[in-house]
């Protein structure tokens, strides 16, 4: 009987260095995920953890899984996360005031207890066979070995999982689909709407940004014939974000005109 935590699988050299370098970083990144305000930052920290794990997989003779981890998780899944984040507002950030009384304290206490017990359990665990390593099963390459397992012993599970994947894709389509309740505004409708407004000031359309000014960028307001900047020429989104360049800066100097 050998203790799992103490006696088996001593590795030294590069792997140990790698581990002691990456593991604390992963833990810090995980903790960071909990405390950063913006979801985007959390996503980046998660991506970092995933890459670290991919490296650990490779270090543990799981080359195929390591590559898949990078491609699928860090590539596809994280992209999906970010894509959704873009969709629902990239700058959405949590307020950290807890609304459910006592939840956070209980959660952290319970989690520390859980983690502590788990760690001590691992420390206590024993194993009754000598460790053999994966050298022999990986003799034809890790991908080959894994493929042999997948397509022989686990072929049924594999097929079931593929069905699951298709079902999930279909389900996502059904969920994300929304029925349009009215036809979208076409140019004709927009035009009619403009002429039906209270005054005809904007009947010919809003002024384009930057055209009559020194710049022709979208964040620069147009100058009206009077020489004043036209705020309506800039997208409301840019204005709300504060990405608009101060329009007065481009305003023709009244004093100069007077001179």
């Amino acid at each position: 009987m050998i203790n799992l935590a103490l006696d088996i699988g001593k590795t030294a050299g590069p792997e140990a260095v790698l581990f002691y370098f990456l593991a604390p970083l992963s833990v810090f990144a995980g903790l960071g995920m909990l405390i950063v305000k913006k979801a985007v930052h959390s996503a980046l920290l998660l991506a970092w953890i995933m890459v670290s794990l991919a490296i650990f997989y490779i270090a543990q003779d799981a080359l195929f899984l390591g590559i898949v981890q990078v491609v699928v998780y860090t590539g596809a899944v994280m992209m999906l996360f970010l894509f959704i984040l873009m969709l629902v507002g990239v700058d959405t950030s949590d307020s950290f005031t807890e609304t459910i009384r006592g939840l956070r304290a209980i959660a952290i206490t319970a989690a520390i207890g859980f983690g502590g017990l788990l760690v001590t359990l691992i420390g206590r665990a024993t194993f009754n066979r000598p460790i053999t390593g994966l050298a022999s099963v990986n003799s034809n390459g890790n991908a080959n070995g894994l493929a042999k397992e997948l397509f022989t012993q686990y072929v049924f599970a594999f097929e079931v999982v593929s069905a699951l994947l298709i079902t999930a894709a279909l389900g996502a389509m059904v969920l994300a689909h929304s029925q349009k309740t009215r036809s979208p505004f076409a140019q004709r409708d927009l035009s009619i709407a403009r002429f039906r407004k209270d005054n005809l000031k904007d009947a010919a359309g809003l002024p384009s940004s930057g055209v009559y000014a020194l710049h022709n960028a979208v964040d620069v307001p147009a100058l009206l014939p009077t020489g004043k900047a036209a705020p309506t020429s800039i997208s409301a989104v840019l204005e709300a974000r504060g990405d608009m360049i101060e329009s007065s800066k481009f305003q023709l100097q009244q004093e100069e005109e007077e001179k």
Binding site: L103, I106, A107, A110, A111, G113, F114, L117, L118, T120, L121
Partner: peptide, 15 residues
Amino acid sequence: LLMIIGALALIAAIW
């Protein structure tokens, strides 16, 4: 949270 507490209880039992 209740699930975590449940998991805690379970692992405490194993412990």
